[in-house]
Amino acid sequence: MRLKVLDHYEIGRDLRYLALEAPDLPRGYQPGQFVHIKVSDSFDHLLRRPLSLCRLDVAAGKLVVVYRITGAGTRMLSEKIPGQTVDVLGPLGHGFPLHDGDRHAILIGGGIGVPPMVELALWLKRRGARVTSVIGFQSSDQVILTDELREYGDVLVATDDGTCGHHGLLTERIDDAMIASADRFYACGPTPMLRAVQRLFAERLPGYLSLEERMGCGIGVCLACVHGIRTDDDVSNKKVCKDGPVFCASEVVFS
């Protein structure tokens, strides 16, 4: 579908906020799903870019993604101005499952893994759950979405260089008391962070990891974005785009 650009601006170094007019969105979406976007109509940058949903406001008919400019393709996308349209597929994949009875959830986002936490935090808050967001960035000029997340609960920030919040890893901001008070965790970010999060919560708190992998089609066909997932005693390749990107943390196998 072709969606019209409503807003498109910088919210951090190399980070862009893109709001699209989306009047006919499917009702059954979940936080943690992604949209697959063409950066241009030419064949030069052929493949779509998977961008996680930051907000999906069905009532207002608006969809928001936040993305990082990482190369010539996303640079091209960043040149779209309000009124122009982009080719969007989705929402795709399986997002974060929500559980009845959860009273407190820890949301962990690293870098460009922070945006999907905004929609998730909103959903959890609406269900009456307490939300603690623990988010990490390289540096203060890349710290994003703190105000949005603060609307739904406490926000703890860490940066690699100490220019904002805690100087160090975001996992260092999660203490035993926080874990003891929580029912579940949700995490999205770079693989080393997910690996550390999985280790931190192992046997202590159930949760979910949203994986990142180079994608092709986004609909489960090309088998580019597979990841090892443990089922019973076996490990099999699951498709991050179609079976995921969210998987049960204890089932994710990091090589």
């Binding site: 052929l46 493949l47 180079r214 994608m215 092709g216 090309c222 088998l223 580019a224 597979v226």
Partner: peptide, 23 residues
């Protein structure tokens, strides 16, 4: 067949490289 390790694809000018490995 499980296929190859990831990354399995890379975009190129007007094309893409893939090495799925016959999964």
């Amino acid at each position: 067949r499980l296929g190859n390790a990831t990354p399995r694809v890379a975009e190129t000018a007007a094309g893409m490289l893939n090495a799925i490995g016959l999964q």
